[in-house]
Design a protein around this nucleic acid. Structure first.
Lengths: 248, 248
DNA sequence: CGTCTCTCTATTGTCGACAATAGTCCGCCC
DNA sequence: GGGCGGACTATTGTCGACAATAGAGAGACG
């Protein structure tokens, strides 16, 4: 798999700029990880990747730094990088943190003060619908991602949005991890789109609490039920949390 | 200023490992930024730094990536890096986000479940006291930093702690920015230490709400009052926020 | 006199090669 | 036979040089 320029063919915000090698490399490796080519715990060997991607090591190393800060890999000095090995504790951190960021975004961003931010959400839903029509699983996942990011973007809080993006990526990592163990989505793509439309209408309605309630439904409940038992707990704290969460 | 190995002489967690160039470089440049050698808006030119630090560009570039993700610099393709230019909107983001992360940490981490985490806090206070006795401003600031990080660490939430660290760094950037405009601390070092001791006792007490109340007092109120009027507002959202915040 | 274009330079982006380290495998000694 | 020490290899860390870009400045044209 060599690096290619067609990241987000439909709706990226980049116009004609030739992306740098490190962005390209980061995107490629990210896809490998989220797509399940590289699994949690796998070593990420620089030489192997430079060969596959056709670039040299320095930009690749920068790309790996980016992925590290996105939480997708971990690096230790002189020992190289590893796709973040997930324990239950990691899942705990990811889910709780992500939820909290969403809460904050809703609190800050609703009711919506700037029309253009809502447009971004609608645009995402629109592209999501197109993807659903095409039965394009990859695009559906991508636009789903964009939608949630756009919702968080309603807060007009760049740092919050960046952090959320990172968490969302790690959430996808969790799901890539689980892909082997279970049927991914029981829900039809159409229902999925509808659910997002409904969320967006609630958002337009302007009541933060309603939005939070809707998000509560939106989520990870089924994901948490399907966690494989083989998962390393990582901490008692996380185990207690999962139990409490499942009991709800 | 060449790179040196003596980062955190007192209490770093590294034992004998010779740190890599990129860590060293990141630490050096971080110091330049937080110490006010490089001011918000200043261009960060790679060649200049490689010369000053005595290292080559690839590791420096990795270091700059790190600093970018810490929020201390911004990079745009082919245009290089700039020390994050602060607008009021940035201050708004930093302060609100930081506060929210503290809130989350307190909610998750208190009452404290693991004794060792509290030890880390006490250790930080102890070192803070030593720094105060030595009238060592730099060490005081550093240990103050560590203390807050340790408090957030009570949550046992790695990702939260990392995010908080980043926000705390950006907070220091704000303060470095303001250093020129006003007298920094009106409070004696001793009172400062005492305030932290009190906070820690409230923490041991185990009531999250009490801790939050204490943190509320702890903070940025005076900082917000002293913001220079020359600061670019950045957004109406931020201006409204500052007004509301000052009215409290 | 202003503006537009073209060159020219400062700076960033990328590369291939060299140095240093950690983990491994083999032989050796007990 | 098992544990220990030492070379070897795979991999990461670092470097200097080359390529490509963006911005600034000088010159020509309207």
């Amino acid at each position: 798999m060599a690096v290619t320029g067609e990241e987000r063919p439909g709706g990226g915000h980049r116009i004609v700029k030739p992306p740098s090698m490190v962005e390209l490399a980061a995107a490629s490796v990210r896809r490998m990880i989220l797509g399940g080519t590289l699994l949690p715990g796998d070593r990420v060997i620089e030489n192997r990747l430079t060969e596959e991607l056709g670039i040299s090591r320095p930009p690749l190393r920068e790309a790996l730094r980016m992925l590290e800060h996105e939480g997708l890999i971990r690096q230790s000095p002189h020992r190289g990088a590893v796709v973040t090995p997930l324990t239950l504790h990691d899942v705990y951190e990811i889910v709780t943190f992500r939820r909290e960021l969403e809460r904050m975004a809703v609190t800050l961003g609703i009711p919506v003060v700037e029309e253009s931010r809502l447009d971004r959400c609608w645009e995402a839903v629109r592209r999501m619908e197109q993807a659903a029509d095409r039965r394009d699983e990859a695009a559906l996942s991508e636009t789903n991602f964009d939608f949630h990011l756009a919702v968080v973007g309603l807060a007009g809080h760049q740092r919050l949005e960046t952090a959320y993006r990172s968490l969302q990526l790690q959430m996808q990592l969790c799901m890539a991890f689980n892909r082997n163990a279970r049927a991914q989505r029981r829900e039809s793509a159409g229902a999925n789109v509808l659910r997002h439309r409904r969320l967006l209408r609630v958002i337009e309605n302007g009541d933060p609490d309603e939005v939070l309630a809707e998000l509560e439904q939106h989520g990870d409940r089924t994901f948490l039920d399907d966690l494989p038992d083989t998962l390393d707990p990582g901490s008692a704290q996380a185990q207690r949390w999962l139990e409490a969460e499942r009991a709800r």
